[in-house]
Design a binder for these strands. Structure first.
Lengths: 285, 285
DNA sequence: TTTTTTGATATGTCTAGCCATAATGAATTT
DNA sequence: AAATTCATTATGGCTAGACATATCAAAAAA
């Protein structure tokens, strides 16, 4: 109310490099908008990208280059709106995405500032084994080693160990790549949560893909560690006993109750997990 | 243009459970808005949470519960706007957050639908080693083993190996927890990118924290694998030669040029990486 | 029959405002 | 001096539209 003139949007912004050709002072909103569009296209050669993304990338580059160090206060929304000649909402959209990416922090009266670097984090992709094998250009094979129904034990992977005894289906399977052992899978399925598993043989379909079809969605917890191959593992994976293996354990739960847990054992020499992380564009590759 | 009546916002929405008390047909926008606010507070007991988040959680629960299976088409934005008695933009915000979370997919003419479950992914937190040790309630120690300036070699971690020979600072250090070896660090620092490193002894400060202060921000690539300890590693970590180790390699680059690479070797038996992942609320714990 | 055109439509982007809310600092009261 | 009030201010949330654009399907043209 006080600052009517500069309130939400800069109604008129004179870019130094290219003065507005049509300087009709009280131009109707439509005409003004056209002008802005043309001006934007002329100034930033990138015609296709939406404005909020241009703003995001621009600010991101200021931060990534060290131009704006951690703790640095960003211009206010209204100022940025004027700078980019757009509405406050568009700026806000860009800034909120930067908050999500962890690059900036915002507080209501205090404004926005560049965040302090946090703990290193990474988005880790743990693909379906079949896809993983095929994407390496190798043939995929699957063998069911054992299938048994039993009660949970203390030694079981965490979520099953914690809860009182429940009936689970235990599967041991071997995934092959190019005819050679690729990964050993030890799987527990909560029969209370996925009763259909009891009538599935799992001889031709691996439990992972099967479960994906059954259980709607999931929250997952992973543990990754290195371990020495025991005698049985060594035999099955055709490696030496004591050889290092990469072990990935995953518990999948849905709404508090554990659905399944799995332990994947990869020969250490043959397998590698990769993860990449960029602040804004954090895609799982 | 055709569907004027139902275009953007449902101007009037009669909730079955609570018919609108003020049924002034052409109520001014302001009064109407007040009504909506009161109505919303009465219907959904959650007063504090913003509407777009309520919508997000609501749709999320439909998907997570399996009520809306993968491939299921969601109601259109306009329909949801009517359902929740809000504007299309608010619905759009919620839906776009669900896209970011990977729960739904949207296409322009086709509408929105529940996404097929993708490759398992997880947000992996790789903390600063000192914090990691201290958070376990153990004392932290740091020892610099060697410090040398040299040219890059073919055998160096990828990004350095790829580029033509450049001058790097190579550091070997040992991190201790409770007086025992915890992690072995092999670090390369690009002296062109971080020239100040040349005049830092790294005898009292580990290169990780030091670099965080120097380099503004970073994109990182990680590789995780299991490997057997070689003679030197075994000696330094006080484990047996050939014992399994968890090896984490990280390359940090900024704007295309590699800043630093690091190989962290943890004794397999003593260390575990954990990662958690929930579709929408994916926090690094 | 095949290709092209055309219209319909749902989302994508953006605007120019509105009011709410949290945080701050100054003025006022206790 | 301490506590309380109060105006200020920047972000948070939201609206009621507008136009843009991708895309699907049906009609028209080849």
């Amino acid at each position: 109310m006080l600052m009517r003139g500069t309130s939400c949007c800069a109604v008129k912004k004179f870019t130094p490099t290219k003065p507005d050709t049509q300087s009709a002072d009280a131009a109707p909103p439509k005409g003004n908008r056209r002008n802005r569009h043309r001006l934007r296209a002329a100034v930033s050669k990138e015609k296709k990208r939406p404005l909020h993304e241009i703003i995001l990338r621009d600010i991101e580059s200021h931060i990534l280059s060290g131009d704006w160090p951690p703790g640095q206060a960003l211009p206010f929304e209204t100022e940025l709106a004027e700078t980019y000649n757009c509405s406050r909402m568009t700026v806000s959209k860009a800034l909120n995405q930067l908050v999500q990416a962890g690059l900036i922090e915002r507080r209501r009266r205090a404004g926005s500032r560049v965040a302090q670097p946090r703990a290193q984090s990474a988005v880790l992709a743990i693909p379906e084994i079949e896809n993983e094998v095929r994407s390496m250009g190798m043939s995929y094979g699957y063998v069911l080693l054992s299938r048994a129904r039993r009660k949970t034990r203390k030694a079981d992977i965490c979520c099953f160990a914690a809860s009182p005894r429940m009936t689970v289906l235990e599967l041991d399977c071997l995934h092959l790549a190019g005819g050679l052992p690729f990964c050993l899978e030890n799987r527990l399925i909560n029969l209370a949560a996925a009763p259909l598993a009891a009538s599935e043989s799992f001889e031709s379909v691996a439990p992972g893909p099967w479960l994906l079809e059954q259980v709607p969605w999931s929250n997952a917890r992973h543990k990754i560690r290195a371990a020495a191959a025991d005698a049985r593992t060594a035999l099955l994976l055709q490696i030496d006993e004591g050889a290092p293996c990469l072990v990935i354990e995953r518990e999948t739960s849905s709404g508090g109750s554990c659905i399944t847990s799995v332990r994947l054992t990869y020969p250490g020499v043959r397998h590698e997990l990769t993860a990449s992380f960029t602040p804004t564009d954090n895609k799982v590759s």
